[in-house]
Amino acid sequence: MSPAPVTAKSARLVLDVQGVAHRFGGLRVLEDVNIAAPESQIVGLIGPNGSGKTTLFNIITGFIRPRSGTVSVNGRDVAQDSIQQRSRDGLLRTFQTPKVFDHMTVLENVMMGMHAHTSSGVLATMFAMPSARRELASTRASALQTCERFGIAHLAATRAGELPAGLRRVVELARAHQAKPKLLLLDEPSSGLSGPEIDTLRGWIRVFASEGTTVLLVSHDMGLMDVCDVVNVLYFGRVIATGPMAAIRDDQKVRDAYLGAA
């Protein structure tokens, strides 16, 4: 009796969560959760505190293995894969508080986005093999372009740890953009951002989708959810509604469970 997911469309599913359940000790936190994210769409996941959002997020990213159910990325079940395996498969997450590399420059941070797409080993790097030097040079050039695009080129040589929260988020997004993930998971990306900064964030999320990245946006910020094609509402471990934001707003169950509470 799970709510019908929007799989009817012919679009390929980049993320397909089927029947995921999880419990901590005796406490059921997720029960028969189904969420689907078709290619290049922006899918939202909202729910009040304690609804199981974070647990579900951690299951999708691989920090937690679910008790039951499948998590498919590009049609392959990754529920038991490690975090690195998932990231090599094109899954990338951001963090509630932006996790930038504090002692590295902004440019180096963005360069790190390319890690999974480059291959120079320890020895090749040490002996400055031509292949390693070429790869590094092209990584740097490409990262610099990304910095320009995100409007942080003037900060390229600044240590990321010295930046204010809003810019740290931009650096994190630029790094994510450099990684060109198939599936981008954003964990409360608007936390700590000001109004205009959130507008910019909304713009970047659309850019990701328009360039072929599927986005799963986890947040309790209803305002930000406008950017989503489809929103899933999680309440006490179950998905109680799925649909476009406009429909979600009018859904009586959601009003009772979530909007009313807020």
Partner: peptide
């Protein structure tokens, strides 16, 4: 080089480095 960036990244923020493979 590439390995050095990865080393410093994992020292600064291990979860983010791991997420970047």
């Amino acid at each position: 080089g590439r390995a050095g960036l990865a080393m410093r990244a994992m020292r600064d923020a291990p979860p983010a480095a791991e997420a970047l493979a």
